[in-house]
Amino acid sequence: MRRRHRKLIQTPELDITAFMNLMIVLVPVLLLGMVFSQVRTIELDFPGMAAGEAPLAEDFRLSVLLIAGGLEVSDSDRGLISALPVAQGQYDFDGLRELLVRIKHSVPEKTDVVLEVAPGIDYQTLVTTMDTLRSYKTVVAASVVNAELFPDVSLADAAEDRVLAVVTTGGAR
């Protein structure tokens, strides 16, 4: 009589080392690749007020236009505040900063601004404009600090065919 031997069937071990290595690398890459963005738009229609009267922070809607021809600062009530044309290929960020400081002194509670950007504006110009809108350097107690201007910047698209308004000389508040 012949004896039948049963073959020992072993279940192979599940090797998940490669999969775990993949997960260890993939999870941080996916987390870093996520885009956290917030897009806000503010409508710019607002009823008029008496001349010389400072607007309320909730009613005053400041808008800065960034186009190839320069920078425009306007509000929803009075329209154009000032136009700062490009001079010798450079944007007038110092003039913009001075104007925004004057506006901030007249409406200190205001923290938001709409930045309208035309297509074709390079990234570095956009970042410099946003930095100019957010804060400025000032001296407090014998040290240089960044003072807040309008830290809540909302981005919007400007029309492609938009041109710089007529340059004003006394457009500050």
Rank of each mutant, 00 (worst) to 15 (best):
L44Y: 10
P108A: 15
P12M: 02
R3Q: 12
S82D: 08
F60R: 04
L100F: 03
G95N: 12
L8K: 06
K110E: 05
V29A: 15
L56N: 14
L80K: 04
A51V: 10
P47S: 14
D94Y: 00
F36E: 03
L62P: 03
K7F: 11
L14Q: 09
R40L: 07
P28C: 06
F19W: 12
D45G: 05
D77A: 09
L8F: 13
P28G: 10
I42N: 04
V73Q: 02
E109H: 11
S82L: 03
D75A: 12
G33S: 13
V64G: 10
Q38L: 04
A68P: 02
T17K: 06
A57P: 13
P47C: 09
S37K: 01
V39L: 05
R40E: 09
I81Y: 05
G79T: 02
L96V: 08
D59A: 14
T111D: 08
E43H: 04
I16A: 05
A57V: 10
T17W: 00
I81P: 01
G89E: 14
L65C: 01
S63W: 04
G70C: 05
K7D: 12
I9K: 10
L96D: 07
E72H: 01
D94A: 06
L100H: 02
L84Q: 06
I24E: 03
V29Y: 15
Q38F: 01
L44W: 03
I9S: 06
N21A: 08
G70L: 03
R6N: 12
A51G: 02
K104M: 11
I24A: 08
V29T: 15
D94Q: 03
F46I: 15
R97L: 04
R78D: 04
G48E: 12
L71D: 13
A18P: 03
Q88G: 10
L32M: 04
V101W: 03
V86G: 13
L71C: 11
P12Y: 01
D92K: 01
L8W: 11
A57Y: 13
L14H: 05
Y91V: 15
G69R: 00
G52F: 07
L96M: 12
Q10K: 06
V29E: 07
D45S: 10
V64F: 15
G89D: 14
G48P: 06
H5Q: 07
S37L: 00
T41R: 06
H5C: 01
G69D: 09
A51E: 13
L31P: 00
P85R: 04
R97W: 01
I67P: 00
H105T: 04
L100M: 08
Q90L: 14
G69Q: 10
A18D: 12
V35I: 07
E58Y: 07
M23C: 12
D75Q: 10
T11N: 09
I103L: 15
R4K: 09
V64C: 09
F19Q: 13
M20L: 12
D77I: 05
L65W: 02
T111P: 02
T41P: 00
D75E: 08
G95T: 14
E109F: 14
L44S: 12
T11W: 11
I103Q: 08
R97I: 03
I42K: 03
Q10W: 01
V64M: 10
L26W: 04
S82N: 07
S82A: 05
G89M: 13
R3D: 14
L14E: 05
P12C: 04
L22S: 07
D94T: 10
V27E: 07
